[in-house]
Design a protein around this nucleic acid. Structure first.
Lengths: 317, 317
DNA sequence: CAATCGTCCTGAATAATGTCAGCCAGGAGG
DNA sequence: CCTCCTGGCTGACATTATTCAGGACGATTG
């Protein structure tokens, strides 16, 4: 808590520049250092979250299509990335999602984080912030080692950016037998962590494919054949590692019972649940997730948003 | 909610510049406008809170003296302005307080605001922010017309800066008889507003002098003679227009009963209560306010903080 | 104790940004 | 139909910020 002496001057420069609007040369004079150092300190201040710069996401929320989606699916907020703020379309959804996320978290909160390529990209696009007393908890177990978007990495990276405490989950996502999964869930450390899900103020997650491209397949937790079987049983999407059917109900299957992850009923009790969908092809899982009312807030691309509106009303909303 | 077409381009420019880090000339090229316009839009975006720039207040909180005050008076946060971030010592406390305040409010919250020179100065120093669903409520009745720091002005100004809804109090602060005050308190509009105090998530206030310099005297609500009498009865400070004694208890006096303002017990039920003390001479009222546990968070100058530590332990902490 | 390394700093050149007088289009009023 | 006015935009220029090669200083090591 006590500032390192080297950081003090960074804070001071940042304060004078951003709060009082002094010019860099004035600051240099007052602090008796060179102008170049001031510029350097200011960059450091921005990079470490000593100063926070946030642009409004209003642009993406103020849109008829967004309003329609809110009404149709009973969502509290929808943001649509349409590539009109172009640079690098790949980066747009993650950085929009990161901004929306940051505008939703506040000091003192507890946020649950799932995992996946999308969540990792969001973590990566997130600016550093200087929040107080924030806890980031991992919503599901871990994948085997040599996989790049590991759940614990998502959690830790977001925690780092928010200047928050990260709570990792010390269990694999998928176990080989139901019995082992049950036993592990009963372990105090794990039970506590699972119970903690209900205390989150918000959640950040995406929805995954339930097909051969699913992360759980790619990382070897499930074979392609097993997944095809699950699909025949009705799996259409994956939320926090668990299979859901087209109505958004957790699939009653052996796979889900082998899975160590947030209970989806507890999950739905979290007041704010931000879902981010990046891939154009995820219409089916997305519809399932919405039918299951997993999200209260949604970030997606214009094309998939349009597809959602065009698709038949079905069981949702 | 639907952006005015003229604002859309401002949002877009702000997004590209601050979120994606493009240069102004790139943005100009993409948006097919001149670079000068981009610079102008960006200024507008900063001025209207489309982009928010906040510097950490850590510098002022990380200090042994602040820690000591927290321990001694059981406060959740203390910030000390010591003039080391110099420009214009007059402006330092208000802008620090404004930054602290902004870091404490979040979207969806309800904040109560008292009044006074200090609160007005804070409102004035506050940057514009782009919060959602915030309500700013006035904590006490209004003063007579031709006075410059009117409670309703404080409320409305802060509401304006936060992009929030302001709820004014349609009653005078002081009435001429107890009977009238009682009758007025029973009016539905007023009763509702008074009841609303308990629902606030945070409060912003200062503590006033209980002497001839008090605002209530200057603005003519109370005569100097009346105030001397109150002082003899034990009044040492003023919180939201009401007299408190050295122990921080509301003074049981006719004046307080004529006063339309937040019930101080309800007030203390607000979870976060930020008190700001600007004047060096306010040691006595400050001690009273702390003894009464009105504040959970405190912003003050180094000299008065030091005086507080040096003063005998008394009944506080 | 000198050599080596790393860190933090600076001056000067380069790049980016802020400003302002003036221009243009469109609306109101004569 | 012209004139004036307003608001929004621009080009050119002045100001301000960033960068980077190199220098100073202190710590570490052989």
């Amino acid at each position: 808590m006590a500032l390192r002496p080297g950081d003090q001057i960074v804070h001071k420069a940042a304060w004078l520049y951003y709060t009082h609007g002094l010019r860099q040369d004035e600051i240099a004079r007052r602090l008796e250092i060179s102008r170049a150092s001031v510029a350097m300190y200011l960059r450091k201040a921005r990079e470490t979250g000593i100063v926070t710069i946030a642009a409004s996401t209003e642009l993406f929320a103020s849109d008829v299509l967004a309003r329609k989606l809110e009404d149709r699916f009973g969502l509290d907020g929808v943001w649509i990335a349409d590539g009109s703020a172009f640079p690098d379309p790949e980066a747009e959804i993650p950085s929009l999602a990161a901004s929306v996320f940051l505008s939703m978290v506040g000091s003192g909160q507890r946020v649950g984080v799932a995992w996946g390529r999308t969540v990792y990209a969001i973590a990566d696009a997130m600016t550093f912030a200087d929040l107080k007393d924030v806890t980031v908890v991992q919503l599901c177990g871990n994948l085997g080692a040599p996989y790049s978007y590991r759940p614990d990495q998502c959690t830790m990276e977001i925690a780092r950016r928010l200047n928050a405490k990260g709570l990792n989950f010390y269990a694999p996502l998928i176990l080989s037998t139901e019995a082992l999964a049950t036993a592990l869930r009963a372990e105090p450390v794990i039970r506590e962590q699972l119970a903690g899900v209900g205390e989150c103020d918000m959640a950040l997650f995406s929805v995954g494919f339930a097909d051969e491209d699913a992360h759980v397949v790619k990382c070897g937790a499930v074979t392609a054949a097993e997944l095809r079987a699950l699909r025949r049983q009705g799996a259409v999407g994956v939320i926090a590692g668990q299979m859901i059917d087209a109505d958004g109900a957790p699939l009653d299957c052996e796979y889900n019972r082998r899975c160590i992850s947030a209970d989806l009923t507890d999950f739905r009790a979290i007041p704010k649940r931000l879902m981010v969908v990046q891939e154009e092809a995820k219409l089916e899982p997305l519809r399932a997730a919405l039918a299951g009312r997993f999200a209260t807030h949604l970030v997606l691309s214009r094309t998939i948003a349009q597809a959602l509106i065009d698709s038949p009303a079905g069981q949702a909303g």
